[in-house]
Design a protein around this nucleic acid. Structure first.
Lengths: 346, 346
DNA sequence: CTGAAAGCGCTTACAG
DNA sequence: CTGAAAGCGCTTACAG
């Protein structure tokens, strides 16, 4: 059976096709009785407005595109749990706004910047990725040049084109260190890259440093080992760290740049026969689901992904309506569990 | 700047608009030089074919829709990790096939069945949901009646309309029990719903029973406590279970219908001062990421989500091309870790 | 309140 | 190998 068109409805209702279109879009221009009749027939025929035709005519798609890209050094079968959480909230917020969501995993090398808005597949883009945006800053500029509406998840940065929404990683790192200092810890190590290639991690590291400096803790000999956000890298980084010291007592606390790193770190510590937090405190970042079930449960920093998704979608929609929008920095929240030694049940 | 159209390109290339269209779609009908010239101009202008126009004309959308729905009794901010894994693999497989993916979280009550294909937003649907399909069997029938191409994730079932791809939960449950029996366990309990409302769980339960019967284990007094797939429900179900017995030695092994249930179960056992697997073995199902980092690491059943995604997308694409497609049952895989007492490091 | 008409930007028979 | 033309199914000025 061929799909019904607005002409079919018009014929059956004894009105013009224009009237059908108006009735179906609840135009106040059409007589209530006519409208109800048309709507009933549409319902009976299971008629749905053809989106392609409608979008072509209206010159927009009523859909948003979510471009997810991860550090290609990561195993791509394993999506960062934090992203997943964002994905879920963006999906929800998009649906709530009456838009469709096109989801796409992008390789950093692909020609992703061009595909979506230009072809009218989406009215705007959300860019979600870890790591340094410098790698594809050129692409962002191009996006902007083309007049594409896009919003980036990440720290606002004057040097980057476009507007962004991000979580205050500096503050998060600061909060973590303040908390550990308050618990009496003084000898710190940091696991995770702390360079411009990983701006989120670097900000966490810097925030940490600030708290230590404020507390007059000597950080000149503070150890830092690179690790990307995986359990395995965390494990290996912790092993390297442990190999560098003579005795576990040389360290009070290990600040990990992410929960995944912390999970691996705890594994490595345990495998050497040490106990967390008895021998050493470990904290993570992200509050991924695993962190709650870790042993011991991980003290970490929570980012409100639900709010983030709503903000991302809400502001992108504003941009599409040509409402100017500012960068946004969200406040993280410290989640205190057992791994730092703060609670009794260790 | 207004977006370039194929007419603009035609004008600049000094050819007709038809030729531009042909050149851009690599039609062999057009002279190589003409084609190259047209393509170069398109590149210079950053021209992209308008999808709405193209789709309208071709009468298909080159996109697939993924409809995710969960048991509404679940907290909807928490997506089942197994789904997430499926989502990732479906996204990838869809992209590999050159299709776009529309993602949507559905409420079981919504009018989801009608929206997608009828409006030409998608060429086909993938339905992904836990629980019983009987609730919305009517909607599936309607989908079929309308000639919508759709594929369901779940156990093939003669009573359900449409074709499905699923994992053999009965076999998974059977494998788990066989393994535990081989380890010498005889006194079993099952945590998770085992009724028609949760067909996946029921199949796991039944498979378990079969192995026990084959091994001549008396199952007449086997305890079973309902739980949906959350950590909290697992915790509460385990507490109920523990309250029903006089001493932990009355139980050898607890088979949990999902990893999330198992996580809660282990927490409950530990909180009572017992040790897993020393005092009692616990196994899960799904092999979600958490299971590996659990303490002790969880013995569980892995479902190959990567393959599942490829199969789902591949077969849906076949259906769209009117190639007949059969139901598929995938083989699960037992993942042996410490929680069952099989490995030394307990 | 309603209808006839134009046009969104393509693809693809049809004709040469 | 190329072009003129039709038409996909809508929405929305325009005219009444």
């Amino acid at each position: 059976m061929k799909k019904a068109t607005s002409f079919d409805i018009a014929h059956m209702a004894g009105v013009s096709q224009s009237t059908v279109s108006r009735a179906l879009s609840d135009s106040p221009l059409v007589n209530k009785e006519t409208r109800d009749r048309v709507k009933q027939i549409a319902l009976d025929l299971n008629y749905k407005v053809d989106k392609n035709a409608s979008n072509l005519r209206k010159q927009h798609s009523q859909t948003l595109a979510l471009l997810l890209f991860e550090d290609p050094t990561n195993d791509d079968s394993l999506i960062n749990p934090f992203f997943i959480s964002m994905l879920a909230s963006i999906t929800k917020a998009t649906a709530d706004a009456g838009y469709d969501l096109l989801v796409s995993f992008q390789n950093l090398n692909d020609d992703w910047h061009a595909e979506y808005e230009d072809s009218n597949k989406a009215d705007g883009l959300i860019l979600l990725g870890y790591g340094s945006y410098t790698d594809y800053e050129y692409k962002l500029s191009q996006l902007e040049e083309q007049g594409t509406r896009f919003l980036r998840w990440g720290a606002p940065d004057e040097n980057h084109p476009g507007v962004s929404i991000g979580s205050d990683n500096f503050l998060g790192g600061y909060m973590v260190a303040r908390h550990l200092i308050g618990l009496g810890h003084r000898k710190f190590a940091f696991l995770g890259e702390a360079n411009v290639g990983a701006p989120e991690f670097l900000a966490r590291y810097d925030g940490c440093q600030k708290a230590l400096n404020e507390a007059k803790v000597d950080t000149s000999s503070m150890l830092q080992i690179d690790a990307i956000s995986t359990d395995l890298d965390g494990f290996e980084a912790a092993e390297k760290l442990l190999a560098k010291i003579d005795h576990i007592s040389e360290l009070d606390a290990i600040v990990c740049a992410s929960d995944l790193i912390a999970m691996g770190c705890i594994r490595a510590i345990k495998s050497k026969g040490y106990k967390v937090p008895h021998d050493i405190a470990v904290v993570g970042y992200d509050n991924i689901q695993v962190s709650e079930f870790a042993s011991p449960p991980l003290t970490t920093v929570h980012q409100n992904t639900l709010l983030a998704g709503e903000l991302l979608v809400g502001n992108l929609l504003k941009m599409i309506k040509n409402v100017p929008v500012d960068d946004l920095l969200m406040q993280p929240e410290l989640i205190i569990r057992q791994s730092c030694g703060a609670t009794s049940q260790c």
